[in-house]
Design a protein around this nucleic acid. Sequence first.
RNA 1: GGUUCCAUAGUUCAACGGAUAGAACGACAGUUUCCUAAACUGUAAAUCUGGGUUCGAUUCCCGGUGGGACUACCA
Length: 592
Amino acid sequence: MTIEQTLLEAVNASVEKLYGPLDGLTLQLQKTRKEFTGDYTLVVFPLLKRSRKSPDATANEIGEVLVKECPFVESTNTIKGFLNISLRADFWLGEFGKIASAERYGIAPRNGKTLMVEYSSPNTNKPLHLGHVRNNLLGYSVSQILEAAGYKVIKANLVNDRGIHICKSMLAWQLYGNGETPESSGMKGDHLVGKYYVEFDKHYKAQIKELVEGGMDEEEAKKEAPIMKEARTMLQKWEAHDQEVYALWEKMNGWVYEGFDATYKAMGVGFDKVYYESQTYLLGKDIVADGLQKGVFYRREDGSVWIDLTADGLDEKLLLRGDGTSVYMTQDLGTALSRQRDENLDGIIYVVGNEQNYHFQVLKLVLKKMGYEWSDNIYHLSYGMVELPEGKMKSREGTVVDADDLIEDMVQTAREMSEELGKLDGMTPEEQEEIARIVGLGALKYFILKVDPKKTMLFNPRESIDFNGNTGPFIQYTYARIRSVLRKAAEAGVVGAVAEGLSLIPEEVEIVKYLADFPQTVQQAAATYSPSVIGAYIYDLAKMYNGYYHDHSILREERESVRAFRVLLSATVADIIGRGMALMGIEVPERM
RNA sequence: GGUUCCAUAGUUCAACGGAUAGAACGACAGUUUCCUAAACUGUAAAUCUGGGUUCGAUUCCCGGUGGGACUACCA
């Protein structure tokens, strides 16, 4: 139980003693603002109806009882209906001792529930770009956070490995590729396949232009372009398991997977389960039959199946084509159902961009109407677009930021800046490279994760590589500096320890108080699926520590007990920073 | 048209319905005999608009204005 919870119970007891049972009234504590004296604050306005006294009188009354009844409350003061509660200094020292010695502080024990987090879910026709980066970082970080909050988490990736877009790449490669392979070209597999996707588009456009110039209607030209017709034929062959097409498909997808794996590895993300759409795309048809039988769906004259959602403010939605083949929604219904059956999940979190808000709204609604209670446990973690200072990313205009290029740029910049500052002197090239990698990626990840997921964000490459302010490198730097202090302490034979009766200076109490918040912060981040909550927490902690570090001696402190305490405090701060960063999927360096 | 998200300093981001709306970058002014100056300290600077609910609204509800996304027998 956290300190805040402990105190809240004491407050509840005091209030009940004064005014009788709470009867469902829930009181809430907040941290006391810096301008006032105290550690936690109770807002008494909600209690006025019970007390029938003025805000200040009510607060004073509660304060008196609290001081008398609760041993760790030192004193209270009242300002305009806010009851500020100060806890005893030795209490904070004791709490710090517990925090410092806790094995996995802030990491909740398993709660017995299992969640699936589906993220990444790329198409196999082109490399990953900046938008995917936000997706992957979010998905991985949220998985880590949920695990820290006590859930068992299955990280899942549903690879979209089939469809017309893959056929486009395949066809263009056949026509114009001259047998090029990743080995022969030196290109990463996903980039090579992406190159032919672009190639297809180029020829496709040229053909449309030609047809339109020949007098054809543009819509018709799009359908009639020979290269497109050929791609469709290829898709049909794939569905019929044509040997040649299938072999080509497997070969080119293999290239892409190798490329993706390298990018995933560079980003530091991974999966427990990988699903392939080629194996799941036929799922869902039984749901359609089921829904028809239940009368939730209806069949039109042409044989297509629909659901009418107009009563819920939405439209009618197609679930099965007239020719009996399934659409995206059909598949998603099917995969959701089969996962629920196979894994006995307590929830599924889909990390998917906000352009699919409508899709998930419909998905949940359909399952609900089918009578599946667990549709309430589906959560669409919707995130906003990533925009660039120059405007939106448009593949047509070549303003897409490639994930691999981006990562390489970030690492390169970190390397240059480190060299300029002479930070890497005396290290081996391998060490230098490792630090550049950790810092460059840390900058990228923190910059993206510190923003509330649902908001459209502006990614400014230059600014993200600014190593000042609310950035990953700033936090990493704080960590590295503490580690350096600890190494020096070890050399000097100073062992971090808490001595009885030590009196803490206000800055130290501030830090301890802040550390006490960590478990709650993790829970809050898990409840809201927001890595940004963790980011804000560790940034504040790092900033707070930097001020403390600047103003107070740690190793040069004369009194041995104080020195030992400060070393332990530093070690604990570093520990929590490292743990928080890990929840965001960010590494911390021992030195930088 | 329908669904939905967003709107806070010059800029990028914060703020379980609580006190004087926090940071950072940029601007301006300072701090290095010192355990890492990729640091620290200070100054100026903001809730799109009109109602409502509330002891109290950046936050919740309704109406504007502005911007984004979706609204395919594509996935």
